[in-house]
Amino acid sequence: MSAQNQQPEHTQHCLLGTREDFDSIQRVILSAMERLDFGEDALFAVRISLEEGLANALLHGHQGDEEKEIEVNWYCDAVAVGCEIVDKGRGYDPESIPDPTADENLTLPSGRGLAMIRAFMDEVTVNEQGNRVIMKRYKARLASS
């Protein structure tokens, strides 16, 4: 069956903040991407972005509490893969994070997670409360991306 003929995959998961659950959801989403012939660049980009989104949810949203559930909604079709990560924390203002790529901030040891997601994905939205990140990566990325 060609990738174009395959049905889009779309599902919802509730995870704990454990390494096992993080690895598990990453395997599921990356496997779906592989079945739809996404390239290595996209697989790497989504893997890193999932890792950063989940780590933000655990460490900042839930203050490291692995027992609190993180909701992950995702889909994958022949055009793109999209993922929404929601934590139960109070959220934060992403604008309050100093630009980690500014020369004066290059030695700051934290604050790069969202910047990496924005660089590796094609569309990224953070809700006003700051506890929900939605990210999308197209299979065929624009040359300018």
């Binding site: 893997r47 890792e51 780590a55 700051l108 040891p109 790069r112 997670g113 910047a115 990496m116």
Partner: peptide
């Protein structure tokens, strides 16, 4: 083959 932002933070701390 894969590196997170936390790992970058660790490298920055070591560099300092």
């Amino acid at each position: 083959s894969a590196l997170s932002s936390s790992a970058l933070g660790m490298l920055i701390t070591l560099n300092t």
